[in-house]
Design a protein around this nucleic acid. Structure first.
Lengths: 107, 107
DNA sequence: TTGACATATCGAATTAAATCGATATAAGAT
DNA sequence: ATCTTATATCGATTTAATTCGATATGTCAA
Protein backbone atom coordinates (compact mmCIF):
# COMPACT_ATOMS: atom_id res chain seq x y z
CA UNK A 1 0.00 0.00 0.00
CA UNK A 2 2.05 2.94 -1.23
CA UNK A 3 0.02 5.69 -2.84
CA UNK A 4 -2.99 7.23 -1.13
CA UNK A 5 -6.36 5.90 -2.14
CA UNK A 6 -8.59 8.65 -0.83
CA UNK A 7 -11.84 6.87 -1.60
CA UNK A 8 -10.95 3.72 0.31
CA UNK A 9 -9.70 5.84 3.17
CA UNK A 10 -12.88 7.88 3.41
CA UNK A 11 -14.97 4.71 3.21
CA UNK A 12 -12.95 3.21 6.04
CA UNK A 13 -13.52 6.36 8.07
CA UNK A 14 -17.29 6.29 7.44
CA UNK A 15 -18.02 4.08 10.41
CA UNK A 16 -18.26 4.95 14.08
CA UNK A 17 -16.57 1.79 15.36
CA UNK A 18 -13.64 2.11 12.99
CA UNK A 19 -13.23 5.74 13.96
CA UNK A 20 -13.16 4.65 17.60
CA UNK A 21 -10.54 2.02 16.92
CA UNK A 22 -8.29 4.66 15.39
CA UNK A 23 -8.87 6.98 18.31
CA UNK A 24 -8.17 4.25 20.87
CA UNK A 25 -4.96 3.29 19.13
CA UNK A 26 -3.59 6.75 19.87
CA UNK A 27 -3.18 5.58 23.45
CA UNK A 28 -3.07 1.80 23.42
CA UNK A 29 -1.83 1.37 27.01
CA UNK A 30 -4.69 3.46 28.28
CA UNK A 31 -7.44 1.93 26.16
CA UNK A 32 -6.37 -1.71 26.03
CA UNK A 33 -5.38 -2.82 29.52
CA UNK A 34 -4.06 -6.22 28.40
CA UNK A 35 -2.00 -4.65 25.62
CA UNK A 36 0.90 -6.82 24.39
CA UNK A 37 0.38 -9.31 27.23
CA UNK A 38 1.29 -12.11 24.80
CA UNK A 39 4.65 -10.66 23.87
CA UNK A 40 7.85 -11.63 25.66
CA UNK A 41 9.51 -8.68 27.39
CA UNK A 42 12.25 -8.30 24.79
CA UNK A 43 9.72 -7.90 21.96
CA UNK A 44 7.66 -4.76 21.51
CA UNK A 45 5.34 -3.82 18.70
CA UNK A 46 5.19 -0.09 19.28
CA UNK A 47 1.60 1.00 19.54
CA UNK A 48 0.25 -2.36 18.42
CA UNK A 49 -2.81 -4.11 19.82
CA UNK A 50 -3.94 -7.61 18.91
CA UNK A 51 -7.26 -8.41 17.26
CA UNK A 52 -8.70 -10.13 20.31
CA UNK A 53 -8.16 -7.13 22.57
CA UNK A 54 -9.79 -4.85 20.03
CA UNK A 55 -12.67 -7.23 19.53
CA UNK A 56 -13.35 -7.39 23.25
CA UNK A 57 -13.63 -3.62 23.38
CA UNK A 58 -15.84 -3.04 20.35
CA UNK A 59 -18.27 -5.85 21.06
CA UNK A 60 -18.85 -7.04 17.55
CA UNK A 61 -18.23 -10.52 16.22
CA UNK A 62 -14.68 -11.74 15.68
CA UNK A 63 -15.18 -11.96 11.94
CA UNK A 64 -16.52 -8.44 11.70
CA UNK A 65 -13.64 -6.98 13.66
CA UNK A 66 -11.10 -8.93 11.64
CA UNK A 67 -12.75 -7.64 8.49
CA UNK A 68 -12.70 -4.04 9.77
CA UNK A 69 -9.03 -4.21 10.62
CA UNK A 70 -8.06 -5.73 7.31
CA UNK A 71 -10.07 -3.10 5.45
CA UNK A 72 -8.39 -0.32 7.40
CA UNK A 73 -5.04 -1.88 6.71
CA UNK A 74 -5.73 -2.13 3.00
CA UNK A 75 -6.70 1.54 3.02
CA UNK A 76 -3.36 2.29 4.67
CA UNK A 77 -4.79 3.53 7.95
CA UNK A 78 -3.32 0.68 9.98
CA UNK A 79 -0.23 -1.48 9.85
CA UNK A 80 -0.31 -5.16 10.74
CA UNK A 81 2.54 -7.02 12.42
CA UNK A 82 2.23 -10.71 13.02
CA UNK A 83 3.83 -12.22 16.10
CA UNK A 84 3.18 -15.92 16.50
CA UNK A 85 -0.50 -16.56 16.45
CA UNK A 86 -1.33 -12.92 17.05
CA UNK A 87 -1.72 -10.04 14.65
CA UNK A 88 -0.91 -6.67 16.12
CA UNK A 89 -2.45 -3.65 14.49
CA UNK A 90 -1.24 -0.13 14.96
CA UNK A 91 -1.88 3.28 13.43
CA UNK A 92 -0.15 4.27 10.23
CA UNK A 93 0.65 7.88 11.01
CA UNK A 94 2.00 8.54 7.55
CA UNK A 95 -1.33 7.91 5.85
CA UNK A 96 -3.23 9.78 8.51
CA UNK A 97 -1.05 12.84 8.05
CA UNK A 98 -1.36 12.54 4.28
CA UNK A 99 -5.12 12.35 4.25
CA UNK A 100 -5.41 15.49 6.38
CA UNK A 101 -3.03 17.20 3.99
CA UNK A 102 -5.03 15.88 1.05
CA UNK A 103 -8.16 17.54 2.43
CA UNK A 104 -6.35 20.81 2.94
CA UNK A 105 -4.63 20.90 -0.41
CA UNK A 106 -6.46 18.77 -2.95
CA UNK A 107 -10.10 18.52 -2.11
CA UNK B 1 -25.41 22.80 10.64
CA UNK B 2 -23.04 24.03 13.34
CA UNK B 3 -21.15 21.21 14.99
CA UNK B 4 -19.09 18.79 12.92
CA UNK B 5 -20.67 15.44 12.08
CA UNK B 6 -17.61 13.49 11.07
CA UNK B 7 -19.49 10.41 9.91
CA UNK B 8 -21.74 12.30 7.50
CA UNK B 9 -18.74 14.20 6.23
CA UNK B 10 -16.70 11.08 5.55
CA UNK B 11 -19.69 9.45 3.86
CA UNK B 12 -20.08 12.50 1.65
CA UNK B 13 -16.39 12.30 0.78
CA UNK B 14 -16.63 8.58 -0.11
CA UNK B 15 -17.57 9.23 -3.70
CA UNK B 16 -15.43 10.19 -6.64
CA UNK B 17 -17.91 12.58 -8.21
CA UNK B 18 -18.54 14.43 -4.97
CA UNK B 19 -14.81 14.72 -4.40
CA UNK B 20 -14.49 16.18 -7.88
CA UNK B 21 -17.22 18.71 -7.23
CA UNK B 22 -15.36 19.93 -4.17
CA UNK B 23 -12.14 20.15 -6.12
CA UNK B 24 -13.74 22.01 -9.01
CA UNK B 25 -15.32 24.50 -6.65
CA UNK B 26 -11.87 25.61 -5.57
CA UNK B 27 -11.65 27.39 -8.93
CA UNK B 28 -15.18 27.94 -10.18
CA UNK B 29 -14.29 30.41 -12.95
CA UNK B 30 -11.83 27.94 -14.38
CA UNK B 31 -13.99 24.83 -14.09
CA UNK B 32 -17.42 26.22 -14.85
CA UNK B 33 -17.21 28.50 -17.87
CA UNK B 34 -20.79 29.73 -17.56
CA UNK B 35 -20.39 30.49 -13.89
CA UNK B 36 -22.90 33.02 -12.51
CA UNK B 37 -24.19 33.83 -15.97
CA UNK B 38 -27.68 34.17 -14.51
CA UNK B 39 -26.72 36.79 -11.96
CA UNK B 40 -27.01 40.49 -12.67
CA UNK B 41 -23.67 42.28 -12.53
CA UNK B 42 -24.30 43.85 -9.13
CA UNK B 43 -24.94 40.47 -7.48
CA UNK B 44 -22.15 38.03 -6.79
CA UNK B 45 -22.27 34.79 -4.91
CA UNK B 46 -18.59 34.41 -4.18
CA UNK B 47 -17.42 31.02 -5.35
CA UNK B 48 -20.92 29.78 -6.06
CA UNK B 49 -22.00 27.65 -9.00
CA UNK B 50 -25.57 26.70 -9.82
CA UNK B 51 -26.87 23.13 -9.93
CA UNK B 52 -27.33 23.08 -13.67
CA UNK B 53 -23.72 24.01 -14.37
CA UNK B 54 -22.49 21.33 -12.02
CA UNK B 55 -24.83 18.75 -13.48
CA UNK B 56 -23.62 19.45 -16.98
CA UNK B 57 -20.06 18.79 -15.90
CA UNK B 58 -20.59 15.58 -13.89
CA UNK B 59 -22.89 13.93 -16.39
CA UNK B 60 -25.28 12.29 -13.99
CA UNK B 61 -29.02 12.82 -13.82
CA UNK B 62 -30.40 16.07 -12.49
CA UNK B 63 -31.96 14.33 -9.49
CA UNK B 64 -28.75 12.57 -8.56
CA UNK B 65 -26.74 15.77 -8.68
CA UNK B 66 -29.33 17.67 -6.68
CA UNK B 67 -29.26 14.87 -4.12
CA UNK B 68 -25.44 14.93 -3.95
CA UNK B 69 -25.35 18.66 -3.40
CA UNK B 70 -28.00 18.58 -0.72
CA UNK B 71 -26.20 15.75 1.06
CA UNK B 72 -22.93 17.66 0.95
CA UNK B 73 -24.68 20.73 2.25
CA UNK B 74 -26.26 18.82 5.12
CA UNK B 75 -22.82 17.47 5.99
CA UNK B 76 -21.57 21.05 6.07
CA UNK B 77 -19.19 20.72 3.14
CA UNK B 78 -21.12 23.14 0.94
CA UNK B 79 -23.23 26.23 1.47
CA UNK B 80 -26.33 26.91 -0.61
CA UNK B 81 -27.47 30.37 -1.63
CA UNK B 82 -30.68 30.75 -3.53
CA UNK B 83 -30.99 33.49 -6.11
CA UNK B 84 -34.27 33.49 -7.98
CA UNK B 85 -34.82 30.10 -9.51
CA UNK B 86 -31.21 29.12 -9.09
CA UNK B 87 -29.42 27.57 -6.18
CA UNK B 88 -25.75 28.42 -5.98
CA UNK B 89 -23.51 26.06 -4.11
CA UNK B 90 -20.05 26.92 -2.86
CA UNK B 91 -17.46 25.36 -0.59
CA UNK B 92 -17.75 25.75 3.14
CA UNK B 93 -14.12 26.31 4.01
CA UNK B 94 -14.78 26.29 7.74
CA UNK B 95 -15.95 22.67 7.74
CA UNK B 96 -13.21 21.62 5.38
CA UNK B 97 -10.57 23.09 7.66
CA UNK B 98 -12.22 21.52 10.68
CA UNK B 99 -12.34 18.04 9.23
CA UNK B 100 -8.64 18.13 8.41
CA UNK B 101 -7.96 19.30 11.94
CA UNK B 102 -10.24 16.58 13.27
CA UNK B 103 -8.16 13.95 11.50
CA UNK B 104 -4.95 15.41 12.87
CA UNK B 105 -6.13 15.82 16.43
CA UNK B 106 -9.01 13.51 17.20
CA UNK B 107 -8.90 10.44 15.06
C1' DT C 1 0.48 -35.45 15.92
C1' DT C 2 -3.33 -33.96 18.20
C1' DG C 3 -5.65 -30.26 20.49
C1' DA C 4 -6.36 -25.55 21.64
C1' DC C 5 -6.27 -20.88 20.55
C1' DA C 6 -5.93 -16.55 17.34
C1' DT C 7 -7.03 -14.80 13.20
C1' DA C 8 -8.72 -14.90 8.40
C1' DT C 9 -11.91 -16.09 4.94
C1' DC C 10 -16.47 -17.68 3.07
C1' DG C 11 -21.33 -17.54 2.16
C1' DA C 12 -25.63 -15.72 3.40
C1' DA C 13 -28.88 -12.27 5.15
C1' DT C 14 -29.98 -7.64 6.20
C1' DT C 15 -29.47 -2.77 5.68
C1' DA C 16 -27.84 1.35 3.40
C1' DA C 17 -26.20 3.99 -0.79
C1' DA C 18 -26.50 5.11 -5.63
C1' DT C 19 -29.06 6.22 -9.26
C1' DC C 20 -32.87 6.92 -12.29
C1' DG C 21 -37.29 8.77 -14.28
C1' DA C 22 -41.39 10.95 -12.92
C1' DT C 23 -43.48 14.44 -10.49
C1' DA C 24 -43.80 18.44 -7.35
C1' DT C 25 -42.50 23.11 -6.11
C1' DA C 26 -41.05 27.68 -6.88
C1' DA C 27 -39.72 31.66 -9.54
C1' DG C 28 -39.68 34.39 -13.75
C1' DA C 29 -41.52 35.76 -18.26
C1' DT C 30 -45.46 36.39 -21.43
C1' DA D 1 -53.36 33.02 -15.30
C1' DT D 2 -50.27 30.20 -18.00
C1' DC D 3 -45.87 28.49 -19.69
C1' DT D 4 -41.09 27.71 -19.06
C1' DT D 5 -37.03 26.86 -16.60
C1' DA D 6 -34.41 25.41 -12.27
C1' DT D 7 -34.26 22.69 -8.49
C1' DA D 8 -36.09 19.44 -5.08
C1' DT D 9 -38.43 15.40 -3.70
C1' DC D 10 -40.53 10.72 -4.35
C1' DG D 11 -40.65 5.87 -5.34
C1' DA D 12 -38.40 2.13 -7.39
C1' DT D 13 -34.42 -0.61 -8.71
C1' DT D 14 -29.75 -1.96 -8.53
C1' DT D 15 -25.43 -2.21 -6.23
C1' DA D 16 -22.49 -2.03 -2.22
C1' DA D 17 -21.68 -2.29 2.91
C1' DT D 18 -22.56 -4.46 7.29
C1' DT D 19 -22.70 -8.18 9.97
C1' DC D 20 -23.09 -12.85 11.36
C1' DG D 21 -22.03 -17.88 12.12
C1' DA D 22 -19.42 -21.51 10.20
C1' DT D 23 -15.23 -23.03 8.60
C1' DA D 24 -10.36 -22.77 7.17
C1' DT D 25 -5.56 -21.65 8.28
C1' DG D 26 -1.67 -21.05 11.01
C1' DT D 27 0.88 -21.40 15.35
C1' DC D 28 2.13 -23.18 19.69
C1' DA D 29 2.09 -26.75 23.51
C1' DA D 30 1.50 -31.24 25.37
Amino acid sequence: MDNLNALDIFKALSNETRLNILKWLREPEKNFPAQQAHLPKEVSIEGGVCVGDIQEKVNLSQSTVSHYLSLMQKAGLLEAVRYGQWTYYRRNEVTLAKIAQFINEEI
